[in-house]
Nucleic acid binder design. Structure first.
Lengths: 124, 124
DNA sequence: CTGTATCCACAACGATACTG
DNA sequence: CAGTATCGTTGTGGATACAG
């Protein structure tokens, strides 16, 4: 149940506020949309599980990205066990609310993009 | 009328291709979504007209962004007059196809974000 | 009008190694 | 398991001035 939640505050640079610019500032990073997508799809994930899901990302970049998403109140970090040490990353309500954007990005990519062949494809 | 158009080719880094990562690579820049939005909303625009629309952007950054969007086949640049020199930027079909994403970003920003008060608001 | 040239600052990304 | 430290590279953004 959601009481009308306070909106996230974002800094406004120009004369009049632009919601698209602000949104781009929040999620317009290379890995942010994928991270959000994986959390949307799989629910709460531990660090390494998330790293597995986000193919190709390094520990540092994932760590940095998660910290940024936390700062922006799109992701929550919870310690679920001390021994062994386990954490879980999940989406806040604001993070969840990004679903339509992420879904559109996925659909668009599937419809209009084509991955370039790797060398491996032609080897062997 | 569109024959099924060849899809844009994008470089795939990981083991399996992720449409979201690729999409984020294409439009995951601070100004790209706004620029696309302004072209969606206003149709073809000249450089300075576009600069006016994209509040706060510098000439260089707009120029760089447009060049990048051109390289990615999302924007077309046409010279419409030599004297006085006039160009027009418009969206390619692929650029147009971004509309649902941009719309979602705008809607989300309007719904969940709130611009921070400027100092000016409290001065006077 | 439509940009480019420069120079600069800082953010993002990445590989490797190392820690609690 | 869940990161941080370090270092280096590249990318992104920005101010100012100048050019075709």
């Amino acid at each position: 149940m959601e009481e009308s939640r306070p909106r996230l505050e974002v800094w406004c640079a120009g004369k009049e506020w632009c919601p698209i610019t602000s949104t781009a500032t929040l999620i317009g990073k290379k890995w942010h949309p994928v991270i959000v997508h994986r959390l949307l799809k799989n629910g709460p994930l531990g660090f390494n599980a998330l790293k597995e899901e986000v193919d190709g990302i390094s520990s540092k970049v994932l760590s940095d990205s998660l910290e940024d998403l936390e700062d922006k109140r799109l992701v929550d970090r919870a310690i679920v066990s001390e021994k062994p040490f386990r954490v879980e990353y999940s989406l806040t309500d604001h993070g969840e609310s990004l679903r339509p954007i992420i879904t559109e990005m996925r659909d668009w990519g599937q419809e209009y993009l084509k991955p370039v062949e790797n060398e491996e494809s032609s080897i062997g």
